[in-house]
Design a protein around this nucleic acid. Structure first.
Length: 305
DNA sequence: GCGTCCAGGTCTACC
DNA sequence: GGTAGACCTGGACGC
């Protein structure tokens, strides 16, 4: 198969740091995302509105400029190129203004490293639907299972770019599958009906989850809306709100509880209330501060901690 | 090789 | 409103 290739340069804000953004969550390893740690690239297979399926690979060319390499079986026109730029911008949250957060964190010397390495952003999916499916697939299971379920969803329900790389399925593609199929072939277990139900609410009942990224609702009301969906409990709703750019909640799961205990509790059990109180001073940014606190050793090179 | 445990939780029934 | 038990899968671990 002969591929055509386009190269696109994208200017990014001064406070944007590419690899910190990619490396700040496990999302970069969930299909159809993939990454190369050595080359410091992030890739994604994506179906464009025109129907063309592309693979976009992003790297930082220099400070303030990203380079996107787009591979496609068909030549791309300007509308396709603009859409790729838009998708990359959404995934990297280029439109998210974190300057109030950076101003707030200036007052906390122990978080000086955040500004220094440009931490704060983390990648998300082009659609809220994809983020929700991935979040539901991450509950009560190992990360390995989340990765396997996500990959199988792409391979079995998405559209192929190559044998190994498929797009993430649309709500319509998931809605057309049966619970039995999701259970048997995707192996999502008891979460299977939740995934089909979410997709069918979008397709058949017109639930507009994409509008949540610009919702006028306050975070508490928005969380209540998100939790109306089956399979979305307290943790999942908090995580989805983080992906929507709302950091008012902590998204406490067993990994975070264990990590907090190691960092701040000398390895002893710490209650959720104590964790809440610890991050309360950070107000509406507390979810983001907690997450950065948890992943500091993952982001900051040993000598600079 | 086999059995058990449990992981980046949620739902339902019951009190 | 609080709590116990069930729920899928698959990797890790002990034997």
């Amino acid at each position: 198969m002969r591929l055509s290739t386009r190269s696109i340069g994208v200017e990014v804000p001064e406070d944007f740091h590419f690899w910190s953004t990619v490396w700040s969550s496990g999302w970069c390893g969930l299909a159809p995302f993939s990454f190369d740690e050595e080359e410091r690239t992030l890739s994604r297979v994506q179906r464009l509105t025109s129907g063309k399926i592309v693979r976009a690979t992003v790297r930082e060319e220099r400070k303030g400029l990203l380079r996107i390499r787009v591979e496609s079986r068909e030549p791309l026109d300007e509308a396709d190129v603009e859409e790729v730029e838009s998708v990359v911008g959404t995934c990297l949250r280029l439109d998210e203004d974190l300057s109030p957060f950076f101003e707030m964190i200036e007052g906390y010397p122990e978080f000086g490293w955040v500004r220094e390495i440009g931490a704060g952003r983390s990648i998300r999916s082009p659609t809220v639907f994809e983020d929700m499916v991935k979040t539901i697939s991450s509950t009560n299971c190992s990360w390995a299972l989340t990765r396997a379920v996500t990959r199988r969803l792409c391979l079995r329900l998405g559209e192929p770019f190559s044998e190994e790389d498929h797009t993430f399925p649309t709500p319509r593609q998931v809605a057309s599958a049966t619970e039995g199929f999701i259970k048997a072939e995707i192996k999502a277990g008891y979460r299977s009906p939740y995934l089909v139900e979410l997709a069918r609410k979008i397709v058949d009942e017109g639930l507009d989850v994409e509008a949540w990224r610009n919702s006028p609702l306050d975070s508490v009301s928005l969380k209540r809306e998100v939790m109306k969906l089956r399979g979305v409990g307290d943790y999942a709703a908090d995580n989805i709100l983080k992906l929507l750019g709302r950091y008012d909640f902590l998204a406490l799961d067993s990994w975070v509880r264990r990590k907090f205990s190691q960092i701040h509790g000398k390895g002893e059990a710490v209650s959720d209330r104590e964790i809440e109180e610890f991050y309360a001073p950070f107000g509406k940014w507390k979810g983001l501060v907690l997450w950065l606190d948890m992943i500091k050793e993952h982001l900051v090179p040993k000598g600079r901690r």
